[in-house]
């Protein structure tokens, strides 16, 4: 298997995640789609690292994982507090700010 296939897979996963962010209505699922996009990026980094024969890309994947973990902490804190207030995690219900 050539690394190019993994790049193609990463692009497909990234697009699935991006479309998911745009069409899904539950904030948690939207956030999961963002995480899918980040994981697609990790796959791309690792495949490129293999293509270039260098370790940088693999190290970057670790950085991305750590940052994604921090993002989960902050994101879930915000989503939990809004769920406790509204009893709903739908991004359509949070519609006070507009126009």
């Amino acid at each position: 298997m050539s690394p190019a296939h993994y790049i193609a897979l990463a692009v497909i996963l990234f697009v699935i995640g991006g479309v998911g962010v745009l069409v899904r209505r539950n904030a948690l699922v939207v956030f999961m789609c963002v995480e899918l996009m980040l994981n697609a990026v990790n796959l791309a980094f690792i495949a490129f690292a293999r293509m270039h024969g260098a370790l940088d890309g693999q190290v970057i994947a670790f950085f991305v994982m750590v940052v994604a973990a921090a993002e989960v902490v902050v994101g879930l804190a915000i989503l939990t507090s809004i769920f406790r207030t509204r009893r709903s995690a739908s991004v359509d219900d949070a519609n006070l700010l507009k126009y």
Binding site: V21, A27, V30, F31, V34, V74, G75, I78, L79, S81, I82, T85, V91, A94, N95, L96, L97
Partner: peptide
């Protein structure tokens, strides 16, 4: 809270 959620996502 709504601003925080929108900004975050």
């Amino acid at each position: 809270q709504e601003a925080a959620m929108k900004y975050f996502l």
